[in-house]
Design a protein around this nucleic acid. Structure first.
Lengths: 343, 343
DNA sequence: ATGAGCGTTGCAACCGGTTGAATTAAACCG
DNA sequence: CGGTTTAATTCAACCGGTTGCAACGCTCAT
């Protein structure tokens, strides 16, 4: 009944008539143990159904064989897709994945300052977070490899690698596309550019938006910028404001697909036809964009996760690796929500 | 430069002029330690910035202070939402969350048979997986508390608690709603009922569908059942088949919202207006349902995750806890994709 | 003064692996 | 046949905490 105490390495040693050390070696680097002994030990392992205790192993090795992943709001489709890339590659390695979700700004602090220190992970993957200078310094102290996915902090040594997208360029190119279609009155619906999580993508895309306008000699109008909480509903509100302007935009660039959906809803409410009365562009190219036929700028979410893990594993194997700053490309996916302005 | 070796409990002990044991006690149950000593130790801890090594702690305690979560396809919105519930509650506890994603049937086996055995977790949460009898037995052997969220296996002792939805009842009620609207030709678009992951929800909902028809004396027509891979695209294909029938259904019940989206797409392709020419109902009530105005049966995804964790933590605290089988309610959310059949 | 009783603290074993150094046994060589 | 190399294995320390038990110092009652 009582699930007989776990089988330990000493049990195996006893049964095989060797010392624990030999069993240990047999299970790892067979090179030092005799062929026959090895086989014998393995047979006993089989028989007793022995599985090494990972925790003991970790303590002894001084490695946790786990990587910590810090993600904010992992239910957001873009984040979830990145995480998916992370998980898919990590599953093929010996490392476990310990997840730390951040839903509130306080958690952000705890995660970034405590996790690296309690030896729970050999490396840290941070998704969509841009550490402040103080946080980066603290990370550096911990001496763990840190990889930023969709987060930028080249300045300090705490960060080893990063995988990003050039959001400024992406925002610029997307805006330029709208301009080339003939739009000059282009609204922007994004997150609060100053937010407690220090999310930077919306802000960066807006910077790109401004650049595109400048280059085209189109004035940047303050009333065309709407900042709000992230999300579909807040974006809908923001879009309502834009569409209520006396000189309303003929196109709206949303900082994410989720927000673009809110924009589309606001347009419908206002009785506007998309794309005839209003063009809408999103960012990310998550599934909803395909479903709704939303024109958007695609970024390689899944790949960013995979690439991040790849870099982290590389560093764990070989701590001397040079720092890498990857920038993944983006691509405009034109669907049915954009067209030249009417009249 | 070299991030000076980690501070251990012995360093603290030395600095505070006590033994490691006392420091350990001071950090845990202060009751045995003198007030003054306690304060002194804590000051040193502060000064040296000491954090206990979790791995050593785990080995010594014989507990891993982590729970393993096994999820298939966590990018599916319904699963992700459940996971969200899990994470949100677990974050408030001392337990870490180690994720194991399953994307292929082989992984299913590894996860269910190995993970419980290598002492990586004190308890297991399994989401949307129904263990086979053999797997359940193996789980029981491991002697770990296991909680099934959206999975059913009351038969064996391996499972401690479970949190489910009555999919049969949900499917029946949903179908009855269509019947009450006046539909008699109702198609069903679901997963392969026989699949390597042993997902049962689609199958169960279909059983409910059959019951509703029987009760209403409507014949169950084999050609109205379409099984396919899970997903929007396969569901679209399936719906195409249904709509191509000479006596096509006037309503389609999709086993999930994701699949309902595929059905809507097929309807649009076929030039049918929803809900006038075709009614469509989904299941889950994930965000896309709200966006598209899809009538659907809501289930409490987030809550199911939270509740599962609650039960698991309870059992970890107090191993004697009685087994609990929770069934969460569902609710029909009527939106704009259902109406009485035309003519 | 003696010893019981209590609150604190130290000691040392233990959790279950890993690993460098020491040991043993076999093999080889002049 | 002694001496040395080499391969295989054992030994014991170690990773960094936890904890039962012993020991210590003190108070208090006898």
């Amino acid at each position: 009944m009582a699930p007989d105490k776990r089988v330990t390495i000493r049990d195996v040693a006893l049964a095989a008539g060797v010392s624990p050390g030999t069993v240990s070696r047999a299970m790892n680097d067979s090179s030092l143990v005799n062929e026959d002994t090895h086989r014998r030990i393995m047979r006993v392992v089989e028989e007793l159904d022995y599985t090494p205790n990972v925790v003991a192993r970790r303590l002894s090795l001084g490695k946790t064989l786990a990587v910590g992943v810090i993600v904010p709001f992992f239910t957001r489709p873009s984040v979830s897709e990145r995480l998916n890339g992370v998980v898919s590659l990590l599953a093929t390695s010996q490392y476990d994945l310990v997840i730390h979700n951040i839903e509130a700004p306080e958690q952000r602090v705890t995660c970034l300052t405590e996790i690296p220190f309690n030896e729970q992970a050999d490396g840290i993957l941070s998704i969509s977070l841009t550490p402040t200078d103080a946080e980066a310094e603290r990370l550096a102290q911990a001496g763990l490899p840190v990889v930023l996915i969709d987060g930028d902090h080249r300045a300090l040594k705490g960060v080893h690698h990063q995988v990003t997208v050039d959001d400024v360029a992406g925002g610029e190119a997307t805006t330029r596309y709208l301009i080339e279609l003939g739009h000059t009155k282009i609204g922007f619906v994004g997150d609060y550019h100053d937010n407690p999580f220090n999310f930077t993508s919306s802000r960066d895309r807006y910077v790109g938006y401004q650049r595109a306008l400048w280059e085209a000699d189109i004035p940047v109008r303050a009333e065309y910028l709407e900042e709000n909480q992230h999300g579909r509903r807040p974006a809908r509100e923001s879009a309502r404001n834009l569409l209520a302007l006396t000189d309303r935009p003929t196109a709206i660039f949303a900082a994410s697909d989720t927000q673009a959906v809110g924009v589309l809803e606001a347009a419908r409410e206002a009785g506007l036809t998309v794309p005839d009365d209003l063009s809408v562009v999103g960012y990310d190219d998550v599934e909803i964009a395909d479903i709704l036929g939303l024109t958007t700028r695609r970024q390689l979410l899944f790949e960013s996760g995979r690439r991040g893990v790849e870099l982290l594993l590389q560093t764990l194997e070989n701590p001397g690796t040079e720092r890498v700053f990857d920038t993944l490309p983006t691509e405009l996916i034109v669907r049915e929500t954009t067209a030249p302005p009417q009249g």
